[in-house]
Design a protein around this nucleic acid. Structure first.
Lengths: 200, 200, 200, 200
DNA sequence: TATGAATGAGGTTTCATTCAT
DNA sequence: GATGAATGAAACCTCATTCAT
């Protein structure tokens, strides 16, 4: 039992907990998962869990944060990249679909268990998500100013259609079915662009 | 104490319970709502509730059933009506949006708390919803056979986009905001049709 | 719906209830049987039951009473009959076994659910049973005075052995098995007599 | 606060619960004893009880198990001991009576509340009891093969009489009355042997 | 850093009984 | 004689969290 060994094992505890919580919250829901079942499945004790997380709510919040931070970081990459906005928006859209599918458990939890967070944290997450959509729509605006996107359709409608469809994925998408994440990302991005791009 | 009086009073208990449950489940979630809080809000006793409903789950199921039965009945009306399929599909789409907004509480519950039902009932509800979508898409097929709808786009994509957007309504639509239910229904129907209709 | 018809039906209510209660209390125990299940099985309503019986306890008490009254009446028949006491005791013993088997449900209830009665009624039933045993043992004493039964063995031991064995029937006797009620009655009576009769 | 101290204190909770449950279940019956009354009497909290026992049923089962395991262990001692079978069987019989009286509460519970266990556990206990009787009767058979016991009386009758009488003890035996456990054991063993031993 | 026994409030549900009709 | 909706107390059990070690 060297130090490295021990360090590895203990640093694994929060990660194992998060991984197991993600799996279980997605599978049976946040409230149907008891702390005891969770720690048993993760192979740690209750005491250990409460050493790393203040509460069960804290665990849920961490899952939200991790997914949203990742998506926002990726979006920023496309927003700040060089090149024509149309190509960057299309890439960002495809990327959101692909990463939503790759992190389906987290995505399901976000849409299903947001209301289980404390009101305060619900507000924080809602703000973060609104921020994401605004940054996304800012690219649409950018394209409009440049004249490559049509200006007639209201932004709200565009957002509803696209984010609604992404959100809806968790309701029907099954791994191993017909389409892979990358393919589906292309489909969705294509539909978004066809609604935005000026005809002719 | 006439007959009508008695009928009203006794039939009022289940109805009051359903109404209050719908409101509370939508507002704070199914598991955040205790039976005690629910019956207090409805002004009945716990015993009375369990006289009419076998369990808290039963109450949730009744809410699901009521919404789905209503939507299906309305869809059937459009499916069996005379006239060109394009018009009937557009009307059905607008109607779904409008009734989803009018019954926003129920709609939110359906998408957020499905996983709180017993596995058996989850299957029943999923089957009912699948059935709804199939009937809806049958109208799309009908239009394709008649040559009024394009055949290139896969049905799954059409369904995902449209139903995803409807589903997503509960995440952002707020009563008293810009658009009313009828207007929004027209917008959504318009977008659906523009994706389906053959160009020129 | 003539009067006779109606009379028959209503007089059948207490009987149907007693019959069903006997069956259910024996099968699943007194406390595991709810009043609702009982009245449903008997095909009557709760109100009807409470019209004839003051409480669930009352129903249990009636079952006890009916069995004990019947057994006591039969014992009295043998006690007061003419002829040598040995023959009458043997017949009474065989009869107890046979009727216990014929009314196995009641017998099981008596030994298993006595403690569920109100303390007052428990005392009443215990007194009645003690009385039965005393009348039974009075016949043994009679035989001793006449010199046909041995006097060495204490009465308590005789009673314990015989009544213990009768009581124990409910634990192992299964209808349709090897021995019928009458045969087993003869076996038990034979064993009792062989322990009482003077040798040689 | 040494190690011994801690060990004693923590092991005391399940034991205190079992002791109190045995006393109360025997006195007023399993279902007349609420979990709240039980834990109050044992001086622990409900949570503590459910930490050690999965359910109220579990507590009942533990009482059954403890008595049956003890009895079986003692019987095995006599079965495997050296010496003539008649003496060993007599000793085993006397021992069963004595230990049944010493553990009268448990004995009463076993015969009165077996039907309150889950069906599965009822089967387990019945099997264990059947096993006990078979081991007991195997000693009778052994004696018959050696020619020391009569062969005419069927084993079932022997078992019914003896175990019936033992079982019946709980119905009439009162501590402090005439006979002590050891004496009564001798009486019962004597009666069993007199029925089994060949005459002359 | 980690344990796991213990807490105690609160959860859902059951049920014998009553009573207006 | 009979109904069945309604009561309300009490039942069993769960669970997130704490804390002495």
């Amino acid at each position: 039992m060297g130090e490295g060994d021990r360090g590895e094992r203990s640093s694994a505890v929060p990660e194992r907990l998060l991984a197991e919580a993600t799996r279980m919250f997605a599978e049976r829901g946040f409230e149907r998962t008891s702390v005891q079942e969770l720690v048993s499945a993760a192979g740690v004790t209750k005491g250990a869990m409460y050493h790393y997380f203040d509460s069960k709510d804290d665990l849920l919040y961490a899952i939200f944060q991790r997914l949203l931070a990742m998506q926002r970081e990726r979006l920023d990459g496309y927003a700040k990249a060089p090149g024509p906005v149309a190509g960057r928006l299309r890439a960002a859209a495809a990327d959101l679909v692909r990463t939503s599918i790759e992190n389906m458990d987290e995505s399901v939890i976000v849409f299903r268990s947001l209301h289980m967070l404390s009101p305060e944290r619900q507000r924080a997450i809602r703000a973060e998500r609104r921020d994401y959509q605004e940054r996304f729509l800012a690219m649409v605006e950018e394209g409009r100013r440049e004249g490559v996107f049509r200006a007639e359709v209201p932004l709200t409608i565009v957002a509803t259609q696209f984010f609604g469809a992404v959100h809806h994925l968790g309701m029907w998408y099954r791994r191993g079915g017909g389409l892979g994440g990358a393919e589906l990302g292309e489909h969705f991005a294509e539909m978004l662009m066809s609604g935005l791009l000026a005809r002719d």
